[in-house]
Amino acid sequence: MEGQLAHIGAGLAAIGSGAAAIGVGNVAGNFLAGALRNPSAAASQTATLFIGIAFAEALGIFSFLVALLLMFAV
């Protein structure tokens, strides 16, 4: 029973990965919108784009990690 609950918890934690995907999509989409308005400034901001994606993705990775822990370590 405990193990099954852990699996359910892992599934719930995996929702966080989807939320992170929304976040990453937001970052990339807004960057693209801005880049199309002002293409000359886009090249200088790619580093910022990747940093933003990395921060958004890190939280998704955390939830993925929680899912893994629930699956394999509990």
Binding site: F55, A58, I61, F62, F64, L68
Partner: peptide, 12 residues
């Protein structure tokens, strides 16, 4: 976050 991002991405 710095370490788990890298390992988590690659592992996933």
């Amino acid at each position: 976050s710095h370490s788990i991002r890298l390992a988590g991405n690659v592992m996933a």
